[in-house]
Write a protein that binds this DNA or RNA. Structure first.
Lengths: 338, 338
DNA sequence: TTGAAAGCGCTAACAT
DNA sequence: ATGTTAGCGCTTTCAA
């Protein structure tokens, strides 16, 4: 059996009414066009009988609007982005929009392709957390006039609106927190170097190290993955003089740290302290509840959506580059040492 | 500035060639129609210059195909489904399809709406893990001739193809494992009662209890959430005689258990054993690595996609209701007692 | 209060 | 080797 949906023409045939009348009734424009009650009833009844479902594709072609927002994230397997995707999807669906979610798999090539796909599908707007260091393809989309907002990851040098965490502040606070707890040998494990949040975090961290006169620190790592956290921690533990604290730049990295530390029978925080970016429900249930720098995920999503709709509705934006402060959630993974 | 993309008509105007020639070249049908090299070059060059992006909406309307697969899950915040979504999305994008992901938020009403939306968007196929107990809306979609496959959750009484875990086997194995480790007071915390996997798990569990002559067991709970796991565990712990083992029906429920147990200063597995459905990378890093019944998530996704494409391509299916056996991952949360 | 018809951008059957 | 044209299903202007 093949797909054979009914259309307004079918309804027109059955009812003997014109397609325009059908269209008007079905779009709630009955009173605007003073269509009689009984006509309306008939239309609705027949539509029901025929299992009519409007063909949005045709509608979109005509109207040039799709009521679709595309969301592109680097990795849905990362709970941080999965959460965001869930929130955005639910939020948008309240406003009658549908969400096209793409996973770029941290691969800029894929991201480019998906973006092209998405543009050719006439989405009304795009929310993207880009995975590469060059934003030319994204800027091209924007300059095409398609509403687009970056979230979490962004390009500082381009005019693309974004909403993200104040990562400099967050990393600085984190670094200060460690130093104030007596840590003098601090190892920072970062994520992908080309991402702006990572870069900014690193700067915030290094700034504080300098301010506080701490020279015995390291910054290593290259990916926001468990594997990277694991590998880098193993390397750190090979050293003669081990760090007293590890500052992880993501929850995934932190998991890798925990795994490596466990294998070395090192306890958190007695043997080594651990502070990480990203909060997550799971963190409460880990062997040691992790002290973390919680990004305001909720607000980021809400504001990103708000900005996007402003663009869609062509409203003037006072600000379109927003950074929100994270907050440190104190748990039990950082020790005071003397 | 407004969105003003160029179309094949623009290219036609600039090149002086007809729209059909443009269309043919752009669709790689040049040699089939013996279009000259230089014509091709011109078309490509001008398309490039005009930043031409094909309008898929128009294309879809014409062809009746959208190269889009919709994926509907009960909750993207649940890592189990987020993982699946990530996998499906990446898998499909390899085959040139794009994925429309919907989060029904465990709400059947929302699911219905999203489904309608999706149908009206002419997707080529639907993958759904339905959240309610009635499948009428889903069966209606199927009977409309739209390729549709259920995964994880499904309806046993309908003819809708599905791919899921052999939950009966999994739950039985789990129950046997507990009994064979000497447990005689076992509390099972289930998820949403209306979901088939939950129902089947419960039956598998109860069956083994009966076989093994164990009467001191309970089945409580009503949602696949952390909160439910937490609440139900608290209730269990109020009892005079506490269970020696808890069998949790999802990773989220297990997290709730852990939280409650921790609050009562009960150790896993010394004071109480914990076995859970669903595996997840995080489980390795919990205070006590959880012994879990790992569903073959990878295979479920792959097979569901395969079935879906069989339907799309109208191939005959030998089987279209597939159950895959999970496997128990032994970690350290179940104690032997005597 | 309702209808006829154009046209959104594309593809393909039918010319030539 | 390339062009003309109908039509996918819908909305909307213009007409009645």
């Amino acid at each position: 059996m093949s797909v054979k949906k009914s259309n307004i023409k079918d309804i027109s045939k059955v009812t003997g009414l014109s397609v325009s009348t059908i269209s008007r009734v079905l779009n709630g424009k009955a009173k605007q066009y003073r269509i009689s009650e009984k006509t309306q009833e008939i239309v609705f009844k027949v539509a029901e009988e025929l299992d009519y479902v409007p063909n949005q594709v045709a509608r979109n072609l005509k109207l040039g609007k799709t009521k679709t927002i595309a969301l592109i994230v680097p990795s849905l397997s990362n709970p941080f982005f999965a959460n965001m995707a869930a929130q955005v999807s639910i939020e948008l669906q309240k406003t009658g929009y549908i969400t096209l979610i793409s996973d770029s798999n941290e691969n800029e090539e894929i991201e480019r392709e998906e973006l092209t796909q998405i543009v050719s599908r006439n989405v009304d707007g795009i929310l993207i957390s880009p995975c590469g260091n060059y934003g030319d393809h994204i800027d091209r989309v924007r300059s095409l006039g398609i509403p687009l907002v970056c979230f979490d990851r962004y390009y500082a040098n381009l005019e693309i609106p974004y909403v993200s965490t104040d990562n400099f502040w967050g990393a600085s606070e984190g670094a200060r927190y460690l130093v104030e707890h007596g840590h003098k040998r601090i190892a920072c494990i970062q994520g992908s170097k080309q991402s702006v949040p990572n870069e900014v975090r690193r700067k915030g961290f290094e700034e504080v190290m300098k301010q506080k006169g701490i020279s015995d620190f390291t910054v290593t790592g290259s990916e926001f993955t468990v594997q990277n956290g694991y590998t880098e921690t193993l390397l750190l533990l090979q050293k003669l003089v081990k760090p007293t604290a590890i500052f992880s730049f993501s929850n995934t990295i932190a998991l890798g740290c925990i795994k490596a530390l466990k294998e070395f029978d090192l306890r958190i925080p007695e043997d080594i302290s651990l502070l990480t970016f990203d909060n997550h429900p799971y963190l409460d249930y880990l062997s040691v509840p992790l002290t973390s720098i919680a990004q305001p995920v909720n607000d980021i999503c809400k504001i990103a959506i708000k900005l996007l709709f402003s663009l869609i509705n062509k409203e003037e934006l006072s600000t379109n580059q927003v950074l929100l402060r994270p907050k440190i959630i104190l748990r039990k993974s950082v020790n005071s040492i003397s």
